[in-house]
Design a protein around this nucleic acid. Sequence first.
RNA 1: GCGCCCGUAGCUCAGUGGAUAGAGCCCCCGCCUUCUAAGCGGGUUGUCGUUGGUUCGAAUCCAACCGGGCGCGCCA
Length: 584
Amino acid sequence: MIKDKLKSVVETAVQKAIAAGKLGALSALSTPIVIEKPRLAEHGDLACGVALKLASAVRSSPLKIAEAIAADISVPEIDVSRFEVAAPGFINFRLGTGWLCESLKEISKLGADFGRSNLGAGQKVLVEYVSANPTGDLHIGHGRGAVYGSCLSNLLAFTGHEVEQEFYINDTGEQIAQLGRCAWACYQRKLGQTVDYPEGGYPEVSIVQFIETVIGKQGDQHLNLSAAEGEQKLAELTKEVIIDWQRKLLLQLKIEFNCWYSELSLHERGAVEAVLEQFSQRGMSYESEGALWLKAKELGDERDRVLKKSAGNTTYLAADAAYHLDKFKRGYDRLITIWGADHHGQVPGLKAAVEALGQDPEKLEVILTQIVNLQRDGQMVRMSKRMGTVVTLDEVMEEVGADAVRYYLAESNPQNPINFDLELAKQTSRENPAFYIQYAHARCCAILRRALEPTPNAESGRAEQPLLSPEQWAEYLKEYQSNASVFEPLFDLDSHVFIHQKSLIMRLQDFCEEVEEAMLARMPGRLARYAYDVANDLQRFYESCRVITSEPDVTKARLGLIVATRQVLANVLGIIGVSAPERM
RNA sequence: GCGCCCGUAGCUCAGUGGAUAGAGCCCCCGCCUUCUAAGCGGGUUGUCGUUGGUUCGAAUCCAACCGGGCGCGCCA
């Protein structure tokens, strides 16, 4: 990559300058060399600010240092057409077309693997997310966690990690008992019985569709059960229906888990009791007021936490400790747990529990996602669970489509609350980035079709022969991958056109770096915005420059650029899980 | 009261210690004989919540304060 190359060029120059005693008392490079893209075009294509960072160590002005370094820089003209020192001490480089062509060749060669890295090679990561209770609908907040977790997983996989995705099902305990009471009542009512619906439970509107499914499958055969048996039976049946429904809904969002991990299974095989025993053996728990407590305060929590209540049942924390211990034992190098921000109070407790069990809490990364406000035309959509006016995730998907849901939920940073505008998400214009990016991909496809498929003549109406035969096209594709100079004719002498051509290619080349940065920052949303930038650069190129021209070499080179652009768009859309349509 | 997150253009938001803080929307002006105008170009818009500190350099790091959200249970 050109940045790496320039970095080592500058590094060599600095070493030379040091050896020649031009950098005062400095004996070794004290700061990493960073090559960055200047904001302003007049500052060149790439720049290095190392002289500014060295100023205090060298005890000289950044400008003089930059000049000393620049005097020792040597680069082939094919890489850099020129470079200069600018105040207050930057060294600015202008790229030659050779490197731009080299980038396009690289993209063509790597194809779907362009941008992939091995940063995470050998790292096994478990990403746990969604983990909604199987007691009703999913809402847009679950959707956010789901999309974020999925994008992050894709991104980790794309950067070489071995990724597994897991959904933790809270399929036991008080919320399931409550589901049982509501489901049993709803079941009886649907089958013509007059019974009261439990007060303060899950709203009937939110579970009735699942009860209908249960009745559809099993009819009224459970109607004669006692209340206790009925509640248990209906809890079991409804839970399964809901889990199945959640699975199908998430699948529509292109989210598929390697494992749906049952909390109940932890209890059934004694893992929760076992973990309590471990706390005790390690001297990390004690009894007080009839309950069993974790010494969480010793490990950074604000106070101790109850593991087992005086009533004899275990807390959520106890099961979570058992679950996370199981994760550690399964041998992952890193555990990522994604929770809604309303659970942030539990993070120190979980970390303490993990540490108390002798595991490294540093390996456990808890990422919190903030709330999603639903809007319509800029107006807040008011929701109340009690009033039954909650807009569910499936309703949003129904209205705006899975791609728009994914894009908007993927685009933001998880720690920021977001406004999701239903009307905006449906728009088919530039205002809607999801649409705009897909449109750019479709436009690339349209140009390629134009060159490769017969098109009807505007005047005669007869189909004209395509510009290129399949054989010629196959030959072109081979050349794109093997010969960088095939791209050289694409550039225009007119600097207004050239700027757009260069911007697009440099943007495509940026993908690798964007991927790595997004992964390290755990912000897949950056790639969504990057995709928008690619789309924008493509549009500008398209407006200023024709791809299919009367000159075969130029056409060949520009078709190569379109293929590369389409490829990068497809790769980035793949990570954020938005489809890349060929026509719109 | 304590803890976590947030505060950047009229609105929605980017901005990982570097050059003159950016994009979209909104508003105004241009542009369709030409590969998708579902578009493009140009113009206007700022006490980066406030005050201090660190630094050659701060929207970015530190401290205090102000404003908003969330959490502080033997609930899940």
